[in-house]
Design a protein around this nucleic acid. Structure first.
Length: 800
RNA sequence: GCUGGUGUGGCGGAAUGGCAGACGCACGGGACUUAAAAUCCCGAGGUGGCAACACCGUGUGGGUUCGACUCCCACCACCAGCACCA
């Protein structure tokens, strides 16, 4: 029997009858299973894709059998750099390359027998799709959540190209190895920070794994503290943010980020402005490497002639700039309390600045006494005027109250999460649908003119000054202003990779709609994604972007639910056979498709699921394929022994198997489910009689894992009904056996193992055991003070 | 440094606080075969012993419990994410 032939046959049948089509508004309960849609690279499906799709396919098939209307869709996240780079290198249009890659992926996925609903296939590079990506962007723009700002990008001075963080890992350009620098560039930004609190709160509505929630919370990085209004002796105002307002009397200087606007503003008053400028330039020249690896080394520059005033006591203290203060967090300025902050302590030493201790209990001659050490320990304030003597916790409250009453500050929360840099000076992405008019400024392209399609270009390479290749196409760039009709220029930036994937699960619910991104009632019917499976690397960025877009749409009445995903799960990363990371450069990648070719899809599916716990990281092994092939061959061979009839002598093992496989699939324990299939198969092989009933149960249990062969055997046997309709149930009574082996313990040490009747009471068991010679002699002369009996497992005699 | 996670045979991995090592891989022995492959059967945590059996075993050290891979405390190692976040 050639599995591969059978598989082709059934794949054709399924496709022909549209077996896995999800039906809008069906009366069955809905179940929405989502796997992250793949990036169709030239390399084809890899081991990061196949286990996900197989695992979710097992769940999808089981859910359908249980009577759910299952939506299990697939599509292509096809915009992005790899394809663009391929186009640059080979002079092929990215459109053509993408098409080719998708065809290959599709063929591969289909050969695995994944039960996707292909009628809902989507592609982010399809005009009918990115029309709506652009449309959603315009809603952000219209609500004021898209804005232009100058931010630093990773820049390769040799390639003259802006790089993503991934392309400049380790601070060097991925292609030429030149150290990258930070270059300021105007970019479109999405005001994600406005949703920080909502993204944080919304997590409570989800059933994501706790570790995923924690990662998201850490990424959002909420911290509560005080916004303190400060003044310079020049009369200029600035704010600082602190979580340690209790240390306010310990301020001995202030530090501004080098990029802080006050620095530029005060250039005439800063005596050593030359020196300051030099420091700022040095900071900008710092490579990513220096910023991450050499961070602990403090540096800075005083603003000579400028003093700041501590708002609580009017003390005049010096002001510095230093790159240890980040422009993008808080207010880009800090109060420095060297006695109680390690960074300030180091910096104060470098510049010989005074250290004022304001919380007692530490040893500030040696090191800073930080909040981590003094919080919650009842430490009290010193050197703090009327607040002296209060505990830290009391002081926090009293100071906040005092500052608020005197309009010197207020309690606020800040977030680490930044706004989203939303433009790329590239070609292969969604054009940003805006035009710039000298008179009207940035104007949205009218919605009825969407999509703004990507024009064909000859060169996909960015220009030497880092502008998008689109900027070279004059007749595309030059347009008229939708507002005033005057001359205007199109935005030549495109959207980042992440754009198309920030709403795709909505499109699956209504993929062919040309009036809206998706019909509201259909979204209401399909609801939240019940289970969203994806890689751990997307838990922070993609998952936050997606939730951000969704929440924005919800706030504007465009989607019916405030959270997009109910559960989020992830598979463990697949490592190379030696436990190292798989990577192209290490040359240790594995092509999962060779196993389909060698063994067939059913074996490849089983083999991948049998490798280990789905959720844990694990090395790829191919030695699981053979035993899985063996299992299928044994099940095929068993068919010859099957006798007619619906009675069964194997009810116990069947019930056990149904129970454990059912629970294992729901709990993502596919490896143990397969073990149980092996156990069940062995049991049936040894059984005196195997009836149609027994065999049907086996095939049904096998079906989600190995859908082709199970259906083939089902059909060969001429069984009525469809194998994938109606899941299995078991009778509690069938789980029980009449005899069971239990361990007999004396003072928790095993002295014997005996078979006992499961219906016996503790007393009956004890009297039976006392007749056992070995046990009786072990217990002889002992004073039994207690007997612990755990039914069907152990009996423990506690004796002196 | 911070936050999460993981540590069980030669290997992948099983075990609602109740017989550790299910199910497999690799290995050893046997059957079939002229032979090999394939297939089937049997064995197997470690140490000692011909054996019955004994002792030791879930990263380390403590604790709770009649009983701990499982719960608690401290520590070590590895992996992942974040990292001058005020």
């Amino acid at each position: 029997m050639d599995f591969r032939e059978i598989e082709k046959k059934w794949q054709k049948i399924w496709e022909g009858e549209g077996r896995f089509r999800a039906v809008d508004f069906d009366s069955k309960p809905k179940y929405y299973i989502l796997v992250e849609f793949p990036y169709p690279s030239g390399a084809g499906l890899h081991v990061g894709h196949t286990p996900n799709q197989i695992a979710m396919d097992i769940i999808a098939r089981k859910k359908r059998a249980e009577g759910y209307n299952v939506l299990y869709p697939i599509g292509w996240d096809a915009f992005g750099l790899p394809t663009e780079n391929y186009a640059i290198k080979h002079g092929v249009s990215p459109v053509v390359a993408t098409e080719r890659n998708i065809d290959n992926f599709k063929r591969q996925i289909k050969s695995l027998g994944i039960s996707f609903d292909w009628s809902r296939e989507i592609n982010t590079t399809d005009e009918n799709y990115y029309k709506w990506t652009q449309w959603i962007f315009l809603q952000f723009f219209k609500k004021g959540l898209a804005y232009k700002a100058t931010v630093n990008i990773n820049w390769c001075p040799s390639c003259k190209i802006g790089l993503s963080n991934e392309e400049s890992e380790g601070g060097v350009c991925e292609r030429c190895g030149t150290p990258t620098i930070q270059k300021p560039k105007t970019q479109w930004m999405l005001k994600m920070s406005a949703y920080a609190e909502k993204l944080l709160q919304g997590l409570d509505e989800t059933r994501f794994w706790d570790n995923i929630k924690t990662m998201q919370r850490n990424w959002i990085g909420k911290s509560e503290g005080t916004l303190l209004h400060c003044k310079l002796d020049t009369g200029d105002d600035f704010d600082i943010f602190t979580t340690c307002i209790e240390t306010i009397y310990g301020i001995t200087y202030f530090v501004l980020a080098p990029e802080h606007p006050l620095v530029e503003k005060l250039k005439d008053k800063i005596k050593n402005y030359d020196q300051v400028l030099k420091y700022i330039e040095k900071t900008q020249r710092k490579t990513e490497f220096e910023r991450t690896e050499l961070i602990k080394e403090k540096s800075g520059c005083p603003l000579e002639g400028i003093y700041a005033i501590n708002p609580i006591n009017g003390q005049k203290v010096p002001v510095f700039i230093s790159d240890y203060v980040l422009a993008g967090y808080g207010t880009g300025a800090v109060m420095a309390v060297p006695a109680h902050d390690e960074r300030d302590y180091d910096f104060a030493k470098l510049f010989s600045l005074p250290v004022i201790e304001v919380i007692s209990g530490g040893n500030i001659a040696e090191q800073a006494f930080e909040k981590g050490e003094y919080l919650g320990k009842g430490c009290r304030l010193i050197n703090s005027e009327q607040f002296t003597g209060l505990t830290v916790e009391e002081a926090k409250e009293a100071l906040n109250k005092y500052l608020e009453e005197n309009k010197l500050g207020q309690k606020i929360a800040t977030y680490k999460m930044r706004d989203w840099v939303f433009s790329r000076q590239r070609y292969w992405g969604e054009p940003v649908p805006l035009v710039y008019c000298e008179k009207c400024g940035w104007v949205a392209v009218p919605e009825e003119e969407l999509p703004v399609t990507l024009p064909k270009v000859d060169k996909y390479h960015p220009t030497d000054d880092g502008e998008s290749p689109l900027s070279r196409i004059d007749d595309w760039v030059n347009t008229s202003c939708p507002n005033c009709g005057g001359r205007a220029r199109r935005e030549t930036d495109v959207m980042p990779n992440w754009a198309g994937s920030s709403w795709y699960w909505l499109r699956y619910m209504d993929p062919h709609n040309d009036k809206a991104f998706a019909d509201f009632d259909k979204m209401k019917y399909w609801g939240k994604v019940d289970i969203y499976n994806g890689g751990g690397e997307h838990v922070t960025r993609h998952l936050l972007y997606a939730r951000f877009w969704h929440k924005f749409l919800y706030d504007n009445g465009l989607v019916p639910y405030s959270e997009p995903f109910d559960r989020r799960i992830q598979q463990g990363i697949i490592l190379a056979a030696d436990g190292s990371k798989m990577s192209k450069s290490a040359g240790n990648t594995v092509d999962p498709m060779i196993y389909v070719e060698r063994f067939g899809a059913d074996v490849a599916r089983l083999g991948q699921m049998f490798m280990g716990d789905y959720v844990e990281a694990k090395p790829w092994r191919e030695d699981t394929m053979k035993p899985c092939e063996k299992l299928l061959k044994r099940i095929v061979a068993l068919a010859d022994r099957v006798e007619q009839g619906q009675e069964s002598e194997n009810k116990n093992i069947l019930a056990q198997s149904i129970k454990s496989i059912d629970e294992d699939i729901d709990g993502l324990k596919f490896n143990t489910a397969i073990s149980q299939l092996m156990v069940l198969t062995s049991a049936l092989e040894k059984a005196k009689r195997v009836t149609d009933y027994d065999y049907q149960v086996l095939l049904k249990l096998l079906n989600p894992f190995a859908p082709h062969i199970s259906e083939e055997l089902w059909s060969q046997k001429g069984y009525k009904g469809r194998i994938d309709e109606g899941w299995l149930e078991y009778n509690e009574d069938d789980l029980k056996t009449s005899l069971v082996e239990i361990a007999v313990q004396l003072n928790s040490k095993i002295i014997a193992r005996v078979n006992i009747g499961t219906s016996l009471t503790q007393d009956e068991i004890v009297s039976q055991l006392q007749k056992d010679e070995k046990i009786a002699s072990a217990l002889e002369g002992k004073n039994i003070i207690k007997v612990i009996y755990v039914p069907n497992r152990i009996i423990n005699f506690i004796a002196k």
